[in-house]
Amino acid sequence: MNPALNHQLIFPMTAHLVFCVLLYAALTLARLPAVWGVGRDADGNNPWATYEKRISANLSNQFEWPMFFHLAAVIFLTRTDVFAHYAVVAAWMFIVGRVLHSAIQIGTTNVRLRGLVFMLNFVAVLVMWGELLMQFSAIKT
């Protein structure tokens, strides 16, 4: 068992942080016409209004289910008696799923596809928590 493997979880955690920063930047750009008047169309409307709402909703989603991802990762990072055998792969699966989910939510209205892709995120986090639970149940006190 290699406790250094647990430290690799900091990279997908950081990737999610960077992804959230990019979503905030996209939201700021989408709001420029409404807030600052920059980029309004000929009628004075925000041409990005539809995307603004989708980006905003997606950004809110980044603080719902991902909370369980970060919590599991922090537990792995701070404990020396549990080891992230599958958690690192699951964490990267989670990040890929988050990016795909966001692209679908922002770029389309295909709720079915979005739900299918969300399952990737959902299962990845369950794998992380499952690994934690199995290892904690095996720890002798």
Score class of each variant (00 low, 15 high):
F136C: 08
Y24F: 11
L71N: 04
M128N: 04
N6V: 13
I95M: 08
F94Q: 10
P47F: 03
L132Q: 00
H16Y: 06
A30I: 04
A87E: 02
F19G: 06
F94W: 11
A90T: 04
Q105G: 00
V38E: 04
H7F: 12
L126N: 13
G130D: 06
A91K: 05
V125G: 10
I55F: 05
F118E: 02
Y51C: 05
H16I: 07
L9R: 02
V89G: 10
E64W: 06
R114D: 01
H16E: 13
L120C: 10
A49N: 09
G44D: 11
L5F: 09
Q105W: 03
V125M: 05
S56Y: 11
V18S: 10
V89N: 12
V35L: 05
M134V: 13
A34W: 01
A42R: 14
F69W: 05
T50G: 05
A103P: 07
I106V: 12
I104Q: 05
A91L: 06
F11G: 09
A91G: 12
R54S: 03
W65I: 11
A25E: 12
L5C: 10
S60L: 13
L133C: 06
V99I: 12
E131R: 02
M13W: 01
R40C: 09
L22W: 06
P66T: 02
R112Y: 14
R54G: 02
R114Q: 02
T50L: 15
H7V: 11
R114N: 05
A15N: 11
Q62H: 06
H85I: 15
V125N: 11
G37A: 00
F69K: 02
F118V: 03
L116T: 10
N45M: 07
D81N: 12
G115H: 07
L9S: 06
V127Q: 02
V99M: 11
K140Y: 02
R79H: 09
A103N: 05
W48A: 09
T78K: 10
L132R: 00
V127H: 01
V38Q: 03
V111F: 15
L100T: 05
E64Y: 03
L126A: 12
I106M: 00
M134N: 12
A42L: 10
N2Q: 07
P47W: 11
L133S: 12
G37F: 01
M1R: 13
V88F: 03
N121C: 15
L100W: 09
V82M: 05
A42S: 14
W36L: 15
R98Q: 10
Y86F: 14
A34V: 00
Q62L: 08
N46G: 01
A4K: 14
V35D: 11
L27K: 15
I95E: 13
M119E: 07
A91C: 03
R79P: 02
D41E: 14
V35W: 03
L59P: 00
P33K: 08
C20I: 11
R54N: 01
G44E: 08
A124W: 06
A4I: 11
V125E: 03
A34C: 01
D41K: 08
L116N: 12
Y51S: 12
F83N: 09
L9E: 03
N121W: 05
A73T: 02
Y86H: 13
P33H: 10
W36T: 14
H16S: 07
F118Q: 01
G107L: 00
P12R: 04
V35Y: 10
S137N: 15
M1E: 08
F11I: 14
V18Y: 08
F11H: 14
